[in-house]
């Protein structure tokens, strides 16, 4: 995997910020553009992509920057979504939960709580999982995710396999989240904030230690860094990001089901990260755009779209290293290492 630095040399910093500003302006204008070209459903698609990009970016932190190949990312995503679903259910029915009145449909309440609870789950299960490494780590994260999946399937009180319907989106003061474009801007805001946070993290001292661990854990241990707390912190932050994405998705889809914790969902997040290039900050976003875009476009072409998408993924992996960012480098004539 190529060594990609997200730090920007001062001379080109201005240009980079200019590009970011233009891209952001375009993204913010997307609902108007979508209306103008007669494709209003594009806004909903863009909302979904920006939510999944948050999830992919948080997996990227663990996977790309810290070398923790987690095959259970969907677990935290699903837990976040269930927090929203369960609190909504209680706010409608008014029933207390274990004696506490936990119902709420305020986004400012549900969202932080979703992030917190996903983080707690990631903390406990991560602390156990991190006792292993390599292939075993991939598999133990998968096992925990499957456990949670079956837990929610058996959770009859909250819909079990059929999931929970969130009839109305959580509300925000002064902002109408039921309006499609408005909710898109809300999600875009969180996505931008999350990417900004990621960018701060990976360039901080903490981020450098993570990078060091990814390259050689033994070396970091040798220079006196106790790696376990760093890895755990990284894993928990990654889980919190997934919880944020899950909570937003529960609001967007107005529906929560155990499918969100299924291993294929974890696989989809992994594909986004790898497609975009693991360990590159915006790779996760690019991966989400390309994967969801491809799925939607190909599904519109033929019902057998997977026959095209499958080989496309294989070719992509074989001929480019580091996914899309590898492809970009390849096209620029750069060396592929």
């Amino acid at each position: 995997m190529a060594d990609l630095k997200t730090t920007v040399a001062p001379a080109s910093a201005g240009r980079t910020y200019a590009i970011i500003a233009i891209v952001l302006a375009l993204l913010a204008a997307l609902p108007f553009i979508a209306d103008a070209i007669g494709q209003p459903a594009l806004t909903s698609l863009a909302t979904r992509i920006s939510i999944l990009a948050i999830g992919a970016a948080s997996l990227n932190l663990a996977l790309g920057y810290c070398g923790l190949v987690s095959f259970g990312h969907a677990a935290w995503y699903g837990v976040g979504a269930y927090v929203v679903g369960i609190m909504y259910r209680h706010s409608v029915s008014g029933d207390p939960f274990l004696g506490f009145s936990i119902g709420s449909d305020q986004l400012l309440v549900t969202l932080p709580l979703a992030i917190l609870i996903s983080g707690l789950f990631a903390l406990v299960l991560g602390a156990l999982s991190l006792r292993t490494s390599g292939v075993q780590f991939i598999m133990i994260t998968l096992a925990f995710a499957q456990m949670l999946f079956f837990f929610f399937v058996a959770l009859k009180a909250y819909g079990g396999d059929d999931g929970l319907i969130v009839r109305r989106r959580n509300v925000l003061p002064f902002i109408d989240t039921r309006d499609g474009p408005t909710f898109y801007w809300v999600c875009l805001f969180f996505a931008v904030a999350w990417f900004a946070l990621m960018s701060r993290i990976v360039t901080s001292r903490f981020g450098r230690v993570l990078e060091g661990i990814r390259q050689s854990e033994r070396r970091m241990a040798a220079i006196g860094v106790s790696t376990y707390p760093y890895k755990l912190a990284c894993f928990v932050i990654s889980g919190m990001g997934a919880g944020l994405a899950g909570a937003l998705m529960a609001n967007h889809a107005r529906f929560v089901s155990p499918d969100m914790l299924h291993w294929t969902q974890s696989g989809e997040f992994m594909i986004m990260v790898i497609l975009g290039g693991a360990g590159t900050l915006f790779g996760a976003a690019a991966g989400a755009v390309v994967l969801i875009g491809l799925e939607t476009q190909l599904a519109a072409l033929t019902e057998h779209w997977q026959v095209i998408l499958g080989p496309l993924l294989v070719l992509m992996i074989i001929f480019t290293r580091g996914g899309l960012s590898g492809l970009v480098r390849l096209l620029r004539g750069g060396r592929n290492e």
Binding site: V69, G267, I274, V307, L309, G310, P311, I317
Partner: peptide, 15 residues
């Protein structure tokens, strides 16, 4: 690395 293998073989499943 394992990541590329996971993605490529996932593509094969779809196919």
């Amino acid at each position: 690395d394992h990541l590329d293998q996971v993605l490529a073989t996932f593509g094969l499943i779809l196919f």
